[in-house]
Simulated assay, not measured.
Amino acid sequence: MDDIVITGYGIKAPGVSDKFSFLNVLDKGICTQSILKNDNQPHSSIVAGLIEDSFIEIKGKNYKRHSRAVRMAIAATMEAVEMSNLDYFKPHRIAVIIGTAAGAILELEQYSSKFFDVKTTPIQGVSYADPHTLSGSVAEAIGSCGPTFTVTTGCTASLDAVSIGKLLLESGSVDACIVGGTDAPLGQWTINGFKKMRSLSTEATIDKAGVPFSTEHRGFVLSEGAGIIVLERKKSAQARKQMIYGKIERVVSRNEGQKLLSSDTTGRHMLEVFQETIGDTIPCYVNSQALGIEVNDQIERYILKETLGCEVPITSVKGMIGHSFGAMGAMQIISSLLSMEYGFIPPTIKTFGKGFEDIPIVYETRHQAVKSVCITNHGVSGNNASLLLTRI
Rank of each mutant, 00 (worst) to 15 (best):
G8S: 07
V16M: 11
D18T: 12
F20P: 01
N24G: 05
V25T: 13
G29P: 08
S34Y: 01
S34E: 09
L50S: 13
I51D: 05
F55A: 14
G60L: 14
K61D: 13
K64F: 14
R71L: 05
I74M: 04
F89K: 02
R93M: 13
I98M: 02
A101L: 09
L108D: 00
L108S: 00
Q110V: 00
A129H: 05
H132M: 08
G143V: 10
T156A: 10
A157H: 07
L159A: 04
K166Q: 12
L169K: 02
S171E: 14
S171D: 14
P185F: 12
L186S: 11
R198D: 15
V221K: 08
G227L: 06
K234D: 11
K235N: 09
K247P: 01
R254A: 09
E256K: 06
E256C: 05
D264A: 11
G267M: 06
H269Y: 03
H269V: 13
V273A: 05
Q275T: 02
D280E: 10
N287F: 05
G292C: 07
N296M: 09
D297Q: 12
Q298M: 13
I303E: 04
G309T: 03
G309Y: 10
I314K: 00
T315S: 15
F325Y: 14
G326W: 11
S339V: 11
G343K: 12
G355N: 06
Q368R: 09
V373L: 12
S386W: 01
